[in-house]
Design a protein around this nucleic acid. Structure first.
Lengths: 195, 195, 195, 195
DNA sequence: CATGAATGAGTTTTCATTCAT
DNA sequence: TATGAATGAAAACTCATTCAT
């Protein structure tokens, strides 16, 4: 049992536990004690390392976004054309680990959190902006600028909507069909207004 | 000043106040006292009429769904063809009163609530099912059955996704553009797989 | 058991209990629960009526100052000359109820509190300013202005110092001797620089 | 880098840090961690050397009293007559280092502490007794015994009162005027009842 | 000697809920 | 019908203290 350098280990465990608890509860209404217990530490330690419950949530949010960003990057590695890159971005959203119930639930909860916390709103905005510009950048070679903006908005909304449905257990489609729905939208829109 | 027959009046006021509070907070984390205060009554009375906080939320949820259902019905009155009816359903979702910040925020909050409360989940399911069958029913004359299901799923997801973006203040489109995005999706899909 | 208009009754009881607890402990390190228990109510109620622990303390401080001010006024009623008024002010400080252990202890605690709380500092300043101007006002007819300021400062310091000694149980003098010490100082100073 | 003989160094650093923290906070409500951090060590070490928080406070109190005692001794060196010695004792109280905000604040805090801790009370009593007998001893050659007791009580109260005013930032006098106030009191009393 | 990890008890605070009137 | 009084359980947060290394 090492006694030094525990901080990053504990922090990681607490963040993971927070996501798991939030995912399981489907809400941010989880207690620090629950999170700490799941992480195998006392609630005092959670406060010791994070300072407050909000900070735990923000760290979890950052973590989830980092996971997503890394996934996007990894998917983008093999992509060569704009179309491939667009598909890669969408694929990242529906990767099994990303589309897992607890992660989806967490995303949704953080969306709600963003309405109350300035920092959460900031984080979420960074994410939405990055996603948007990423989409637009790869759409522009394939259609005109105005259209690129619209398609990006449509894709993003579609993904969010499908996430919600999934979180609610109201998505009749499986993972591939879900992903297919978005790809199909993209194809249709690009087919329509192609350069 | 008759004291009889106050129940429906008080209940309505409390429901309205609950939606307003939830909408303003962007969360279900509002207190019964806040709701009661906004309704101009004591918190005791809120419990007297509803029994518990959860019941207030469920009543508010039912109310919002009723408002939406009525709006759909009203929009459908003038519609004669399946296409008109589909457009009417979408139009109902983006009616100014439906697309108002507090209503959108409430919808989102209730989506979250559905993850915890069986009754909330049941209510939400009724709504999603009705919307889905309504869409499918009007899509079937225009495309094949499998496609109708997919399009209905797409439209529903798109609407939900656009609601979220709107709730977050991250929707770059105005109300008409937002609605147009959905109509456009529908047109494209129907143009593609038309009977 | 009346159910209406309890607020002032409860507030008064809580303030009294707070002073008693602080006096008994000799510290502000008393818990809200202790105060509430002594007042015969739940800690929740204390917060309900005061909002926070700090507010309870501030209310207690205000109460103690009000008691003192009233006592000064009452003592001043019978005073006709400046000298009588000066004696009256001093007498108020050493009235048996004012010089009671719990009241003295509370004064001392609030002096400490003033170092942390802006509002407490403000309250204390009001009190010290009022006392000072009260003294100076009655000293001016008896000596020159500069001297009046000095004597007022001396009297105030002497009173505070004697309070501390009393709080610590280190005052070898009884109440009358204590009061006499201050009167004596006053007489000496006035005899010295009399107009 | 010898590890032996660290104890006195660490203890001294911790005591100094404790006084600084208490002085800055104006309260004993400082954490062991704060003190340790200011001393540049871990909170564990503070406990290692002192055993408990209370012991740290007591040590700090002793230190402050030792500083004062040394200062009195040093001032007394040059004093030849009782009157000079009395002036020297007073001068020690208002030496710039003794009259520094953090030291004054600490004194006041320890006065409060004495109401709770038996040991603190004992320490404080030793100090007050010594000061008292020191004053009385030098007063007796100049006045009668009973008067000497009274004057000693008056001087001590005056000094304490002026300290409080200073701690609260409510002392309108500068250091010399403050000291002058006490000297003046002494002169007056001695002039009055001189042998 | 020294650290930082870790705990758990204690405190403030919030709030749904109950109840006497 | 309606209120506001009152509670008590639960939650966040703090911190002295202990301990393995």
């Amino acid at each position: 049992m090492p006694k030094l350098g525990m901080e990053p280990i504990r922090k990681a465990a607490l963040i993971k536990a927070a996501i798991a608890e939030i995912g399981a509860a489907g809400t941010l209404e989880v207690t620090v004690s629950q999170i700490a217990r799941r992480a195998g530490v006392s609630s005092g330690l959670a406060h010791h390392y994070f300072g407050s419950k909000d900070q735990i949530f923000l760290a979890a949010m950052r973590h989830i976004q980092t996971l997503f960003r890394d996934r996007v990057r990894s998917e983008l590695k093999a992509a060569r054309t704009p179309r491939e890159r667009l598909n890669a971005i969408i694929a990242a959203s529906f990767d099994p680990e990303e589309f897992a119930p607890e992660i989806i639930s967490s995303w949704l909860s953080f969306y709600v959190q963003a309405q109350n916390s300035v920092e959460a709103k900031r984080l979420l905005r960074i994410y939405t902006r990055r996603l948007h510009s990423n989409l637009v950048f790869n759409l522009k070679p394939l259609t005109n600028a105005a259209n690129a903006e619209l398609i990006a908005a449509g894709v993003a909304a579609l993904v969010d909507g499908l996430y919600i449905r999934q979180a609610l257990g109201e998505n009749p489609l499986d993972r591939f069909q879900t992903m297919g729905l978005v790809w199909d939208y993209l194809e249709l829109k690009l087919g329509q207004g192609a350069k």
